[in-house]
Design a protein around this nucleic acid. Structure first.
Lengths: 131, 131
DNA sequence: CAGCATCCAAAAGGATACTG
DNA sequence: CAGTATCCTTTTGGATGCTG
């Protein structure tokens, strides 16, 4: 994707499919940017984790949503599910190579949030005080 | 917010705040990754646009959601709203410098989606056929 | 432990009509 | 043009109880 410095040129042209609600890219975007997708991917970006570990890592998620979101990510080929048939069973989740590539590109974004949350909160206060 | 006790365990340590449902970072994450936030930011990442232009660019969004999401992004200090009091009025939206930094880090992620949507769709089919 | 099923409450979102 | 207001439907998500 060329970020052309040409005036009036659409550098996002290659993304026009995500802007199209009919394109599968939109569905992929929704899966990842759903309320829990990114957090799960970020958690797994560090290391494989078991169901209960993920549940503990990600604050506020219910078992239902964790399970549901994981199934979606597995179906999308971003996460792999591995079962050890012990008693009690161990089920661990890890990123596929596809998921690793994605998570890498997510890092910057999540890093930005960590660094600039304070700026956003300041902006919110400024905005609220001003009316 | 340094938590160094668990040595070497969490490469995402700096993000532990996003994992905490009580932290404002979670709210920022939700605003941006809400259904329309990213698409609006991506659209504005190219150039300032008017309300109706955004509405045309982003497939499937209603005026209500566009308006609502824009207000949130303006409050968060990511987007600036400019009114020209002509008749009919012109209202244009553009990224603030804060929003520009964010959108830059978003580029990679959105680029990944564009490039790998096809892989995800293939994985979905493989998964569905296999059961 | 790792989940699925069910029920229910809450939030998100769309359609439509209307305003400055 | 750029919204707002209202109503209503759809989706999301949490709590709970139950399995292998």
């Amino acid at each position: 994707m060329e970020v052309g410095s040409q005036a009036g040129r659409n550098a996002w042209q290659g993304l026009s499919d995500a802007f199209n609600s009919e394109c599968p890219a939109r569905e992929v975007l929704d899966h990842i940017t759903g309320r829990w997708g990114m957090l799960i991917l970020a958690a797994l970006g560090e290391e494989p984790q078991r169901f209960s570990e993920l549940h503990a890592t990600i604050g506020g998620i219910s078992e239902k949503m964790l399970s549901q979101t994981l199934r979606t990510l597995v179906r999308d080929g971003l996460v792999e599910r591995t079962v050890e048939h012990t008693t009690p069973p161990r089920v661990s989740y890890e990123l596929t190579s596809l998921g690793q590539g994605l998570t890498k590109s997510l890092e910057q974004f999540l890093g930005w949030i960590r660094q600039h949350t304070i700026d956003v909160v300041a902006a919110q206060h400024r905005h609220d005080r001003q009316r």
